[in-house]
Design a protein around this nucleic acid. Structure first.
Lengths: 120, 120
DNA sequence: ATTAAACTTGCACGCTGACGCAAATGTGCA
DNA sequence: TGCACATTTGCGTCAGCGTGCAAGTTTAAT
C-alpha cells in the first residue's frame, strides 16, 4: 500500500493516536506531576503537588487542568481543595490498545528473497 | 506517600515516561506520518510520505528525522533514497511496559474506612 | 562533465505555550 | 461580616517549534 492510500484507509491506529494526549504528556513538568501523583497512590491537592516541581502554583493548577482534559487525571472537589487522581484504568487500557494496534500493523513474515519486489 | 517524597523515590514509571517521545508524537503531522507508514506495512521514502500530508518535503524530512531520534522510526539508505520504517517491536514493548507500570501504581484495595491513615 | 533526482540544511517568520505575578473567585471559620 | 486558605484566571513576556523557500549535498544516469 502507498502512503497516499493509507491516508484514506482508516485503521484502529487513527482512533488511538491522539495528538492531544501525547502533546499533553510531552511536557516535563506535567509528566513529573503525573509521575508523583501515580507514585503517591492517592488523590492529592494542587498545593501538595506544587511541592514536587519548581514552578508557581498557578502553573501547576493549569497543568493539572490540562491533564484532566486530556483524560489522564480526574478531579473531585472537597470544600475549597481540589483532589486530583490518576485515571489508572483508562490510561492502562489506552496504552495497551495502542500497543496492540501498532503490533497489528506489523507485517508477519518478511519476503525473504524477492529482489524484484524491493526496488519499488 | 506525599508528592514531595514521591519525587525522590524512583519507580518504573520514571524511566518509561519519556517526555521527548510524547512531545514528538504530540504533533498532528508527525502522527499522520507515523499512521500512514504503519498502515503501509512497508518501508517508505521521504517523497512517498510527503504525499500523505499537506506540508513541504523539507518539513517531512525534518519530521521523519525527529521520529527516528525519538526511537519511533528507523531508516536505511539505498542509493539516493532514504527508507523509513516503523519500529513496531520497540514501540509495542514501550507502550506495554508503560501500561504495566501505571497499572502497578494503582492501589489494589481502597482503605474503606481508616480515617487516621488518610489525613497524613 | 552535466543534468536530474532525493534529501538535507540554513534562514526568517508567525504562532503556540509555559511561566510568573497579580487580581479575582470560591469556601470554611471566628 | 471579616479573614485566611485553596484555587482559578487575566495578562504580558519570552523561548521553542512548525513551516516554506532557497541553497547545498549526495548519488545515479546520460
Amino acid at each position: 500500500m502507498d502512503p497516499e492510500e493509507a491516508l484514506k484507509c482508516c485503521g484502529p491506529m487513527d482512533d488511538l493516536l491522539d495528538a492531544e494526549l501525547f502533546k499533553t504528556l510531552g511536557e516535563p513538568t506535567r509528566l513529573r506531576l503525573l509521575s508523583c501523583l501515580a507514585k503517591c497512590g492517592r488523590p492529592c491537592s494542587v498545593t501538595e503537588l506544587t511541592k514536587c516541581c519548581a514552578v508557581d502554583l498557578s502553573v501547576v493548577s493549569r497543568h493539572l487542568s490540562s491533564l484532566e482534559i486530556a483524560g489522564v487525571l480526574s478531579s473531585t472537589k472537597e470544600g475549597r481543595t481540589v483532589f486530583y487522581s490518576v485515571r489508572y484504568k483508562h490510561l492502562t487500557e489506552a496504552f495497551r490498545a495502542l500497543a496492540k494496534a501498532i503490533e497489528g500493523c506489523r507485517p508477519k513474515r518478511k519476503a525473504s528473497k524477492v529482489p524484484n519486489s524491493v526496488s519499488h
